[in-house]
Write a protein that binds this DNA or RNA. Structure first.
Ligand code: SF4
Ligand code: SF4
Lengths: 162, 162
DNA sequence: ATATTACGGATATTGGATATCCCTATTTGG
DNA sequence: CCAAATAGGGATATCCAATATCCGTAATAT
């Protein structure tokens, strides 16, 4: 059970977009170059973000993406779910229904304890991701990333942002 | 990102084995019949449990599986990790290394904040699963499952347990 | 007008999950 | 001792989602 690599891509892109000045846009091409990713395929991940309403887009030269909300209101969970979907990791096949000891046509009323436990774990995972916003991430990155790279990247991005 | 169905199978099998009287064994064949699963493939899941040391096995007629520890000491996490593996759900491809603004040969010292956040969420998921033992599951199931089915299944299992 | 962009459909390619088959060593029960 | 039953493991086939590429369309800035 491994998340798609698009999740990492989308998280990185949102991290970059978080530090983009108000009102400016960054294109798929720039984001792909910056991260060394296939442009056409990264585009699909960005479209997922767009479809989820997390980013706004503009067409034409100097077009691209910007965050739809301030980074304080964008969480890791938003991005992960936009790309990976909102479904549970544990999908119950209801195999208890195959129990030969069950009376024919018997129908359980409640989801069983096994599934509930797995879903609670899913919820704990989601809760952890919901707690971290991109504002906090930006703060952490600014402390941890080498100032030289930080400034260089910022300049690189600004030069390409429409 | 969806868990393999083998996870559900293994959880169900351990639930059954939890209520098996001390010293007796239940075969793959019986477990497959009880849950309506392909015997040969279920066998792979049970082998994972065996390889992880969660169950003991015996060969020959009347052979099969029993829990290696009391249900109080067997957690959901044990079973899930035995089948699904212990790796993180978020695999970092280190795409920050592709940043064209980085000096050549530059090497980050610490895993980045994005990966750490994702791994923390993984840990929250694991913690939730580690909290639930099969002793607690048995207690819940006994309360929730219809007494008729519960008794019938118990009898069905005992008849086939070696 | 032209170049650039997001978007979406179509289409490979790949790898892991699913599933089956068969052989071997071991143990039980007769 | 013998025959049946069992776990274990290797080989193989199938299926499907993730990965990746390509191209056409509409919109937009210069
Ligand atoms: S017991 Fe729970 S996990 Fe298993 S089939 Fe039923 S609902 Fe699904
Ligand atoms: S920034 Fe973090 S998640 Fe992204 S490539 Fe680097 S270590 Fe991996």
């Amino acid at each position: 059970m491994i998340l798609k690599s698009q999740v990492e891509w989308a998280l990185h892109c949102c991290a970059i977009l978080s530090s983009l000045p108000e009102g400016r846009f960054l294109s798929t091409k720039a984001l792909a170059e910056l991260h060394g990713l296939p442009k056409e395929y990264l585009s699909k991940a960005l479209q997922s973000l767009s479809h989820a309403g997390l980013v706004h887009t503009t067409l034409g030269p100097s077009g691209g993406y910007r965050l739809a909300r301030p980074p304080e209101q964008l969480t890791f969970l938003d991005v992960v779910e936009a790309v990976e979907g909102e479904g549970p990791t544990f999908v119950c096949q209801n195999i208890r229904a195959n129990n030969p000891c069950r009376p024919q046509g018997y129908c359980e009323s409640t989801p069983c304890a096994i599934a509930r436990t797995m879903w609670q774990a899913d919820e704990a995972w989601r809760t952890a991701l919901r707690k971290v916003t991109f504002a906090e991430l930006a703060k952490t990155l600014e402390q941890e990333v080498s100032p030289q790279i930080w400034a260089g990247t910022f300049e690189w991005v600004l030069k390409r942002a429409g």
